[in-house]
Design a protein around this nucleic acid. Sequence first.
DNA 1: CCGTTTGTTCCATTTTTCGGAACGTAGTGC
DNA 2: GCACTACGTTCCGAAAAATGGAACAAACGG
Lengths: 260, 260
Amino acid sequence: MSALTNAIDILRCFSTTRPDLSFADVQVLTGKPKSSTSRLLRSLRDCGLLEQDPHSRRYRPGLLTFELGRLHRAHDDLIATAERELRDVCARTGHTGYIAVLDGYQQVVLRIVPGSNPLRVVNPPGQRTPAIITSNGRAMLARLSDQEIRARVPLDYPKVPGNSPQNFTELMARLNEIRRSGISDAADEAIEGVGSQGFALASGESGELIGIAVSYSVQATTELERANVRRELGAMAAKLRRMTGDPLGQTIEQLAGLAS
Amino acid sequence: MSALTNAIDILRCFSTTRPDLSFADVQVLTGKPKSSTSRLLRSLRDCGLLEQDPHSRRYRPGLLTFELGRLHRAHDDLIATAERELRDVCARTGHTGYIAVLDGYQQVVLRIVPGSNPLRVVNPPGQRTPAIITSNGRAMLARLSDQEIRARVPLDYPKVPGNSPQNFTELMARLNEIRRSGISDAADEAIEGVGSQGFALASGESGELIGIAVSYSVQATTELERANVRRELGAMAAKLRRMTGDPLGQTIEQLAGLAS
DNA sequence: CCGTTTGTTCCATTTTTCGGAACGTAGTGC
DNA sequence: GCACTACGTTCCGAAAAATGGAACAAACGG
């Protein structure tokens, strides 16, 4: 286990629910001896990857991560294109739009398009959620080969909300349904009372895969309205697939071979 | 030189002007042998700090930096407070506001408040600029002790625009002027035709130091308007200094001792 | 003043890293 | 078809760094 690996393990302890950590927190979360934790935290702080609050002595991601994180946005083409289209749809429907990517079996929110409806934005950019309990998460999974999916989902299937697939078999059934229809949906899963519909978009040339979704309050929308969202998404998906050369039908590995 | 140091050296090669790099770019910029570069890039990619475009094979900051960069924003109190006040001033004056921090002898833009005037935002968040050629950069430097300043400015004084201090003596004269007046200004320095005024704000309890500035087109503003900006900034500075317990008059080292 | 919590430093051992050189692998010109 | 070059990866012994247990230090609480 290299020094870099250990450093990354520390960095991965930080999340939206734990934006800053004390020495002890890090030690518990990583399970490393005190001496190693001490040395690593100092290194990470000295190099700018972490900052330490002089008062509370707690650690948080540093200036360098801020700078690099901004640069990550440059990675555009596919995302920017999708975001433009998503803005149109959100403006028309009033709902909130999300763009996310897959990382392991989790999805990470990259962009948000706030809607005009009074549903609060609940997943800020950077938020991680198990892909199996969101509409665009499942949409992305559905684009992978069955063996890739099996490799990503933890062996002991995680505890999920009632409306989500409760085991691997149910998950695969749901993914196959998505593969047929091209659109994925969810209701009352990650968040009580919130529903969403989404689809996955792959880039023909880069092999990237992103999920695009629109979310809304289940109570505050009618069946008719949700059908309209579905139409909008279908149209957006068709348009984006043409624009990006999405080779629908092939799994992502067949294209690029670069598993994340 | 540890593995982490080398990794950081690679990460620091990325910037707004160079958001992605090829293998060769990295090798030239770091001056390391090919084998080391190869191994390190692979490690960084595997751990998520970098991504590699499957097509162009170029590297860019990865998903992990995006996530951590978002978390850096949580580091708020001082910045959020300042941003709120800055928004008010920008709304009243129509100019663009900046909040930045010092890193070595450079400043890094943290927040931008776009104004209503048609001056384009030229420094996106994450942008690095030598602190000696900006108004808030100099304002922050002026809050350090003379020896700290000397330690930060490179020994061979950098080549700077005509209106900026041309050598260390001129710089110190300018900083002393800022120390007297509390407000710093710049015109036609970092960007042709753009002027700005700013000040530095320190937090009494955390010892943090940030720079706050308002920038405008020199041609499109009158002397009277700039005097108004100065009044606005003076008022904002006074208010913020009360709110944050800024111990004006002391250098930052005397407070916290934590040099970045 | 002693026990606890919290974090740092020491140091011998183990593990990585380092970097020169050899080894692929395309692409390019002739 | 063949040398030539640009670009990158893998190998391997020497050298350097990480590791973690234990001693040490500092702050806190009672």
